[in-house]
């Protein structure tokens, strides 16, 4: 099998370059909003909330806050990365180059995931200025971080392929992802909910992400860690399957 490494490299490189130009706004806005969350939730409200399972509220929300930014930014980066060339028509040159769909995906998704990973690290660093952050299982933390970046960049890539206007590009993150993150135990423990809503929450995939990620910091979780990991892998594989189907049919890329 031949792989056009050079093509993957240039797609990756120029996607990263694009982010570099808007570095300030791509990092400043999540850093500022994270800081605001800490001021409002961590300090103002958090000071009135007891510890949750032995963790102070300010600390407790760090993994959820990070996930909120990771998910929205992974999706935004990856979906825009492939949508924009479709929008301008410049996608023609990728389609007419000796590049496989797989290579196109690796280039775009790889760049988007890298950007989100950097963002995740920056947010954690920001958080460490507000709270005394300790990571119980750094390797697990990194694993969850990386898997989340990749799988949600894949998901964003799907949205970017599917969307044929700017509205569609925005609608899924806005209407689905943000509510799922807020309702997925990012800012509270699921055990604080009434039993009926606890059960409902179990159907929210984001719960598993946040729970596993939080466990890697504080060893407290809503669901079993193995289950969290399993859910992320399932989501990642599902995204890959959808993308390979889209590529096979040339869905919204080729006439």
């Amino acid at each position: 099998m031949r792989i056009n490494l050079q093509a993957i490299k240039v797609i990756y490189k120029y996607e990263m370059l694009r982010a570099w130009k808007t570095l300030f706004q791509s990092l400043a806005s999540p850093v500022i909003s994270t800081a605001l969350y800490f001021v409002v939730f961590g300090s103002a409200i958090g000071s009135r909330i007891d510890t949750i399972e032995g963790v102070s509220y300010g600390l407790f929300i760090v993994p959820g806050l990070t996930m909120l930014s990771l998910l929205t930014q992974s999706i935004a980066n990856a979906s825009f990365g492939i949508f924009f060339p479709k929008f301008t028509g410049s996608i023609y040159e990728v389609l007419s180059a000796p590049v496989s769909f797989f290579e196109i995906m690796v280039g775009y998704v790889g760049a988007a995931a890298t950007k989100s990973f950097i963002l995740g690290v920056v947010i954690l660093i920001t958080a460490s200025f507000f709270v005394d952050l300790k990571i119980a299982h750094p390797v697990w933390m990194a694993t969850f971080l990386i898997l989340t970046c990749i799988s949600f960049s894949l998901f964003g890539f799907i949205i970017g392929l599917w969307a044929n206007n700017f509205e569609k590009l925005q609608i899924i993150p806005l209407l689905i992802i943000t509510p799922l993150v807020f309702l997925g135990g990012s800012f509270y423990s699921v055990s604080m909910l009434p039993p009926f809503w606890q059960t409902v929450t179990l159907f929210n995939p984001v719960l598993y992400l946040v729970s596993g990620f939080r466990w890697s910091f504080f060893e407290v979780s809503d669901v079993n860690v193995g289950l969290s990991l399993g859910m992320i892998v399932v989501f990642l594989v599902a995204c890959l399957l959808v993308i390979s189907w889209m590529f096979k049919t040339g869905y919204r890329l080729k006439e």
Partner: peptide, 15 residues
């Protein structure tokens, strides 16, 4: 992107 970058991108796509 700049003119220089975009032609380098095109060349790279062709390996």
């Amino acid at each position: 992107e700049t003119v220089w970058n975009t032609i380098n991108f095109s060349r790279g796509l062709f390996g």
